[in-house]
Structures are given as C-alpha cells and as structure tokens.
Amino acid sequence: MPHASYPANSVIACVDGSNQQPTVLEAASWAASQLVCSIGLLHAHDPARSGVASDFSGSLSAKARESLLDKLSKADAKSARELTEHGWDILESAKIQLKSASTAQNFTLHWHQSLERSMTQLQEDTALVVLGQNGSENSGKKIGHQVESAIKACSQPLLLTTPKFTAPKRALLAFDNRSGSQEALDWIGRYPLLFHTEIHVLMVADPTPKNEAKVREAVSALKQNGRRATGEVLPGKVINVIDSELSKGFDTLIMGAYGHSAIREWVLGSNTRELLQLNPGTCLCFRA
C-alpha cells in the first residue's frame, strides 16, 4: 500500500496523545535540529473490528449475509470515523506543541493500521523514528505493548524516549559482533545526530587482544568521522555490566536490537528487552 510520499531524510515522531508525547516531540525537535530536516508526526491506530454483536439468535434469515455485511460495515465505518476524528485531534495538538519547540518543517502521517505495520511502510530514506518507550500511564509498564513489535518491524534507526529527555551528552554504545551494532557505528559516523555527544564503546566480553582490537577499530572509526569516542572491553553478563556502566553518568544507550533469531529469543529471552527494562534513559536502537 503506497502511502503518499514525504520529504527524504525526515525524522518521524510517533504520537498517540499519551503523557509521553511531550518528550517524544522534544526528542524529535532536537533530532531534527541536529540532522537539519523535517519532522513527520505519525499517528497510527488500528481500528478494532469487533463489530456489532448482540445477536445470539442462531437463526439465518433470507438475506442473512447481505444484511449482516451491511450492519458490520456501517459499524466499522462509524468507529473508524470516530478514530479518525480523534487521531486528527492528537495530530493537531502535537503540531501546536511542536511549533513552540522547533522551527523545522513538519508534516503529518495518519494511518489506520497498527504501529507495527506502519513501521514497515515508512520510506526507505527516513532518517530516524522517535517513539516513547514506556507503556501508557495507566498500564505502568516499562515497555509499551506496541513498542517491541514496532522495533522489530522498523528498519530505520529508532530513538526510544523515556519521560526525562535531555539532549545526549554521554552515550554508551553496546558493541558486539553482530550487524546491528556495526550498523550503529556506520550510521553515527554518517549522520550528525550525535556530533556533540561523547560516545563510549563498550564490549561485554572477555578482554582478549582480538576483542580489544575490535573496540579500538570501532573507536578509531568514530574518531575519523570527528566524533569524540573512547572504548573498553569488560567481562561479565551483558545486562549486569551495562547496568553498572550506565550508572556512571551516561544519558543514552545505543544498541543493535533483537539480533537473535525468534526461537533463541523465545527460549533464552532477549537482551534487548532486558536492557529496555532497565529504563536506560534515551535509547537509540538499530536493527540488523
């Protein structure tokens, strides 16, 4: 389904009218000012198709199909219309909030489909997607119920925000040998998003010469692109090491996300999920 096209290299901010919206917009404004690009406001809502159902009579009249189809499509149309109205309200309020914070050009995307599906339909040339990490205020969940599937579906880099967003000063890059973190290195070098950010490359592994060489290589690649970078190899369990490192004044975590197969993830759990559970502040995710 080709949706209308939007400007290349845009930052897409996912808004849903929740209490996370202000930080998402703040982060998006910051990203757009770093990348010098437009901001797209995306509101995606999947219309629930539960239809009208109170008829348990179990009988079939003549024209049962036609009249049922008519009823159901009318009910769908009505709920879709309401959702659409609601969606435009959210987008309008986001626009107003954005105007006070940013001078970047903005545009809106309003889709009737799940966030997951919307992620797959973003333009290839989208620079960055900004999404609130936490669940809605009522659920109190650290990871919103649509967030993980959205990260998995999104092929662009994804900036996850928590309720306290500040422009990243010190970022921890969780580095391993998988393509996700390599993608992160390339991207950071190519785009000026983290130009003013100090980046610490951390590999959680045994500090063998081979691993240390890899980290040195990564650091020098960043330096070549004019970024401020340091590096380190630390042994231990990924989640514990990163947790203790994060407490040393890092405001941002950069990582490759969901690099393992679905089966491994199901059996052993996912590092990505555990890291997000730590609530590491702002998180920049790259899919392999």
Binding site: R49, G51, L60, L72
Partner: peptide
Amino acid sequence: IGQSVINVKSGGR
C-alpha cells in the same frame, strides 16, 4: 456458510 455467518453475527472473530 450458514454457521460461519451465524458465528460472525453472534460476535465470533
């Protein structure tokens, strides 16, 4: 056909 229509009509999804 008939039972499927009845199922949807009664709210089965």
